[in-house]
Simulated assay, not measured.
Amino acid sequence: MQAFWDQILDFSQTITTEVGAKLLAAFGGAHAEEKSDGSLVTEFDKWSDERLRTAIHDAFPDHGVLSEETTHVFPDTDWCWIIDPIDGTTNFTQGIPLWAVSLGLLYRGTPVFGYIYLPTLNQRFHGYWPGTSGLDLPIGAFLNDKPIQVRPDDPGKNQFFSLCARSTDVLKQSFPCKVRMLGVATYNLLIVAAGYAIGAVEATPKVWDIAGIWPIVHAAGATWISLDDKPPFPLTVGENYEKRPFPTLLLNRADLVEQFRPLVQVVVGDRSSKR
């Protein structure tokens, strides 16, 4: 089984390096179109999507694929990759050097491996987390191959908490941390796993925003709260995930949920008016 996971990691590093190199060459100069949900897409999102799907099919022909740009229905396969070809397309088109390529590998509907590459930062996150899968895999979370974990700190005015663009109503009340907004859903949550922030919230992430980071943040010791009380995983075979949001609160410690959930729960009630 270790050989399989070595293959998965090597494949993820190789294909994201290839895709990242082309995206870096186009960074800041891509023309974007607006999709029906108001988000942006470029020709490079589409190219990256196609390249990733083709590479997965060639390397793992029995694995399914679910993608932001093309296939949104979860397939009837034991193994499925969920890909986000460019997370942070708006940053990518506007020349802001913070965007990512995201891969998540699911076993029977639950992510067990994730790989996130931020080419402009030369940061590569990956992690393994079996959850309830029963798989024998090397549990751990890593940034550039070095182990990472959440920081144990208490909230404070010099501690970071990350918001998304649809969660700014949180600031209509007193908030116990410094706020940051990054424009990249994966990185927004990964900074908790890396120990840079003690918490983060995403109001409307889609499955391709969270599948890759799910194993990483859990292996790093973070606490994941589904703000709509609907567990994200396992996914359901045959269901279309194009429009389903997964409002999420991520914290460095479970004992802080009681303090922070009431402060961020507003993002669930207000999310429909902010799309």
Rank of each mutant, 00 (worst) to 15 (best):
L235I: 07
P97S: 04
F74C: 11
R180K: 14
H31C: 06
K243W: 08
L98A: 04
L251T: 07
L121G: 08
R253Q: 15
I8T: 15
F92D: 01
E202S: 13
E69W: 06
G95A: 11
D87V: 11
V65Y: 07
G88V: 00
P231L: 05
F142Q: 05
A30W: 12
Q13G: 14
T90E: 15
L135W: 09
D58Y: 02
F74T: 12
A30E: 15
P138Y: 01
R124S: 11
N91S: 03
D87K: 06
L250H: 02
A141N: 07
I225Y: 02
T132C: 03
V192T: 05
F113D: 08
I82P: 08
C80N: 15
T90W: 07
N122I: 06
I198S: 06
C177D: 06
C80R: 13
A254M: 07
R53V: 06
P130F: 13
E33I: 12
P111K: 08
I116L: 14
R261G: 03
Q265F: 12
Y115M: 08
E34Q: 14
E68A: 10
C177I: 00
G212I: 07
P75V: 09
K46N: 10
P75W: 11
N252R: 04
G64Y: 09
R124Y: 08
D270N: 14
R261Y: 00
C177H: 02
W99I: 02
E33Q: 13
L24H: 03
V179Q: 12
T120C: 10
I216D: 10
P205Y: 00
A222G: 12
V266L: 00
L171I: 02
V65C: 04
S48K: 02
Q94A: 10
A3V: 07
T42Q: 10
L103Y: 01
R244E: 12
D87T: 07
L118Q: 10
D228K: 07
T70D: 13
A211R: 07
E43C: 04
L66A: 14
P205A: 00
A254F: 01
C177A: 05
A254P: 12
T223I: 05
A30F: 09
K172A: 12
S48T: 02
Q7F: 03
E18Q: 14
L118I: 15
N188E: 15
L250V: 10
D84N: 05
G156W: 00
D229G: 01
E18D: 13
D62Y: 09
N188P: 05
F92A: 01
T204G: 00
A25I: 04
P61D: 13
A193V: 04
A254W: 02
I8A: 12
G64F: 11
V184T: 12
E69Q: 01
